[in-house]
Design a protein around this nucleic acid. Structure first.
Lengths: 207, 207
DNA sequence: CACATAAGTGAACAAGTGTACACATCGTTA
DNA sequence: TAACGATGTGTACACTTGTTCACTTATGTG
């Protein structure tokens, strides 16, 4: 008996989003992808695209939503594993790097989107970063760290931290996926960046 | 008498590069530009493209070279105007913002290229940033600032500074060209970021 | 079970794409 | 001035692109 099509709801939709990510993972830029190209990669007829997305920008927006989930998972893991403030920065950066490796295409898409073509995608990613920064500020408050900073200054610090980490993303993604030495270098450098920022925050307004 | 063609050498080449920049300035992503599109914008026949560039990537690379000139001009102006260390950060950020405004398309191209499609362009921009950072380190040494830092730590600091400024670029370029209030906000925020980094650098290794 | 609706398909079209070739024209140098 | 190389032009071709339309097929609800 031949295989029945066995359509799972939303299966093609997933296939299309994964196809776009796969192409991005292969070095293509999201802005240069076409509908036909994506459907071809997904093994689906071009018309199917319109059943799920209005346009490429639309697909991008939905990818941003999923990116949000990935980031939240990462935060949860960081909160679970970083218990004492001792090696806080080092471990957090490690978790970040591990997630960036595991979801390379996703983070590649994020890095591209920051200066991307679609205003909506750009704003979406920016908003995810803001959320991330505010959660970080909450955590620091909860851990009774940086208590001498005003709320505004703490927000600023966290903003700077998130930006720095996001920029490290472009370092990380421009080197080979399994060049462990270089990956270690990026991790060390990012850690030092954050340490310097926190030293600055520690002495902020006390001079 | 009809206008003679009056071909100036390298004129079409300039027209093509400007055309690409113009399109980027209009919100398009460089990776999504096509040869025909650029030649059309330049008011030139498609075949002319090949007289000057092998491909779009090639054009991108040559744009990176010109970007280098823009950055050097900016550095020169900063060095000339920032005489006393007093308002050093504030004035430097001001000059940067002004140049980013004046050469919007160029900086847009730079921001895009950081996570762009062409490995070569990516590496080129990264290399410009490294150069910029090392020049900054030289200047700080010359001004007898941060003398307690080792060369490596000073380099790291300058790297972090350049990254932070580069990231501000994406803020700056995502807002309207003449929204003076928002531009002022970005300038203020960037200034504070740098101040915090320098506070951190000032206390580095002295704890 | 039947039926409404969502999801997938294939053929078709006009428009746009990269690139090749042969030819015209300019500026420069011998 | 003659000739040459660099630059600009027009035409052509084989593909790819986005989008449409009418059609089939599967899924879940009454």
């Amino acid at each position: 008996m031949a295989d029945r099509p066995k359509r799972r709801p939303g299966e093609t939709r997933e296939k299309l989003m994964n196809a776009a990510l796969t192409l991005v993972g292969k070095g293509r830029h999201f802005a240069s992808l076409g509908i036909r190209e994506v459907t071809r990669q997904a093994g689906v007829v071009p018309t199917s695209f319109y059943r799920h997305f209005r346009s490429m920008d639309d697909l991008g927006l939905q990818l941003v939503d999923e990116l949000g989930l990935v980031l939240r998972r990462m935060m949860r893991e960081a909160r679970a594993n970083v218990l004492q403030a001792d090696k806080l920065i080092e471990e957090s950066v490690g978790i970040f790097v591990a997630h960036a490796q595991a979801n390379r295409s996703f983070f590649l898409f994020m890095a591209q989107g920051l200066a991307g073509e679609s205003r909506a995608v750009q704003e979406g990613i920016r908003s995810e970063m803001r959320f991330f920064a505010s959660e970080l500020a909450n955590d620091l408050r909860r851990l009774r760290l940086m208590e001498h900073l005003s709320d505004a200054d703490l927000d600023m610090t966290c903003d700077l931290v998130v930006r720095t980490v996001a920029f490290s993303l472009t370092d990380l993604l421009s080197i080979s996926e399994d060049d462990d030495y270089q990956i270690g270098q990026v991790r060390k450098r990012t850690t030092r960046f954050l340490q310097m920022i926190f030293v600055g925050a520690g002495h902020w307004q006390s001079d």
